[in-house]
Design a protein around this nucleic acid. Structure first.
Length: 439
DNA sequence: TCTGGGGTCCTAGGACCC
DNA sequence: TCTGGGGTCCTAGGACCC
């Protein structure tokens, strides 16, 4: 938090729908809904015209259609949104090099890091915001943005909300608490339905009410990290810096099916296709990850994840697919799955060579210090129980065959029942002796 | 015809090590 | 013999955001 209003938050108005109205003039002034159009689709963005019918983001598209049958329903065109977003972010970087995009349509700007910062009183900030909005409309073919300016990220975001649509709002330093006091706790970013309900049971509805709670009360209710930050935010205190570069922590692909799927073979095929899509995205970005996560959602919406951590980071479609399908075998899909997803986390910007891929034969000692690793794919086969073919063996750091050092990750495949589970063993695990390991 | 897809951060418990 | 920490890694789940 600063004594001057030097944090700017910009939010494009009804962004996806606005891009569609820009590109299709016949849609201007009319209700437009962008989102999933299938039976299980939900609304991504509703134009302001559509919002007058009560249509909101995350609403089922079927419900939106019932509320406003004559609206235009469009599926999203991410490439177009990305192009527009890039133009907007470029304009923001002309103000200051410290721009933190939060999504395609939202960003913080640290004005204090920019050239104009010396001359920025409140009127100067306001004028700058108007100039940026005009330039954005000009360069994007008419997209409108709302801008908030305040002494912290938190209040800048609150301010842009107050500015919507198509406006500017500056929270003057010193007035933060007055602005916040009457607002619902839901106005605080991070307070969702669950937290709001817990607070409501304590009789807390507004930010002013929230200020009546001690830090210990909040931390015992909500946990240390969240309780502490909420205690501060309620008092308008927010010292978070604007951060230009944020590293990606995970990458994932998921799909909701039009109808539930029970057949494990079909699901395995889908997981394999998703692994390829994920691998492509990893490679585009020059990234790799060590933990593969499978996500499933049952017919009744119950959602689970299963993950396995590999010996080293990978971007390889086959490795990801093997791990994901291995995890799939732990899932009972007999009552039907509505969603399947594959993700990778534990990111690295380097890739471990495919030394550990089981279906690659040992390559004859071309890499001396690695031959024991490359040969592992064949050797464990002779050591694992009859009937369980080891189709994939990954070797942890420092692993040397027969030495008892390191860790071994194995996916079993039995001849009779298809893909089996992934298991990790210490290399000296006594269960690795023949006949004792149950896949 | 209930409830998308892409993320982030936090918590909690268990294993394991010192 | 019993009692004890702390730290890190891994897994699973939950809340939240756009």
């Amino acid at each position: 938090m600063r004594r001057q209003a030097t944090v700017l938050h910009l939010d494009l108005d009804a962004f996806f729908a606005a891009v569609e109205q820009r590109d299709k003039p016949s849609l201007r002034g009319k209700p437009v809904v962008v989102g999933g159009l299938g039976p299980r689709g939900v609304v991504s963005t509703a134009s302001y015209e559509a919002r007058t019918y009560g249509i909101r983001s995350a609403m089922r598209t079927a419900e939106a259609r019932a509320r406003c049958p004559h609206a235009a329903y469009l599926s999203d065109r991410f490439d177009a949104y990305r192009d527009a977003s890039r133009v907007v972010m470029e304009r923001l970087r002309e103000i200051s090099p410290l721009v933190e995009p939060l999504s395609l349509d939202e960003a913080f700007v640290d004005l204090a890091a920019g050239e104009a910062s010396r001359s920025l009183d409140l009127d100067g900030a306001r004028a700058l915001a108007e100039q940026v909005r005009a330039d954005i409309a000009d360069r994007t073919g008419g997209l409108t943005a709302s801008v908030g300016i305040a002494s912290s990220k938190f209040l800048a975001k609150i301010a842009s909300e107050l500015a919507k649509p198509d406006g500017v709002h500056v929270v003057e330093p010193g007035t933060e608490l007055d602005v916040l006091a009457p607002m619902s706790v839901r106005a605080i970013p991070g307070v969702g339905p669950a937290t709001a309900e817990r607070l409501r049971r304590l009789g807390v509805h507004t930010v002013e009410d929230l200020r009546g709670l001690e830090a210990v009360e909040l931390t015992s209710l909500l946990g240390t990290a969240y309780g502490t930050s909420l205690h501060a935010l309620a008092r308008g205190v927010d010292h978070r810096a604007v951060v230009a570069e944020r590293e990606t922590k995970s990458l994932s692909v998921e799909d909701t099916f039009e109808t539930d799927i029970t057949d494990p073979r079909v699901l395995a095929d889908i997981a394999t296709t998703m692994s390829r899509r994920l691998s492509d995205r990893l490679r585009e970005r020059g990234m790799s990850g060590r933990t593969v996560t499978l996500k499933i959602r049952h017919h009744d919406f119950e959602t689970h994840t299963r993950s396995a951590t590999l010996a080293g980071p990978t971007d390889d479609a086959r490795t990801i697919a093997r791990t994901a399908t291995g995890l799939l075998t732990e899932i009972d899909s007999s009552s039907g799955l509505r969603l399947l997803g594959v993700g990778v986390s534990g990111m690295a910007d380097w890739v471990q060579d495919d030394l550990f891929v089981a279906d690659e034969e040992p390559d004859g000692g071309a890499e001396p210090e690695l031959t024991s690793v490359a040969g592992a794919s064949a050797r464990p086969r002779t050591r694992w129980p009859a009937g369980a073919d080891v189709v994939h063996a990954e070797l942890g750091p420092g692993w040397v065959w027969g030495s008892g050092l390191g860790r071994v990750t194995v996916r079993f495949e039995t001849r009779t029942s298809g893909p089996g589970p992934v298991r990790t063993f210490a290399a000296d695990d006594p269960s690795l002796t023949p006949g004792t390991v149950e896949p």
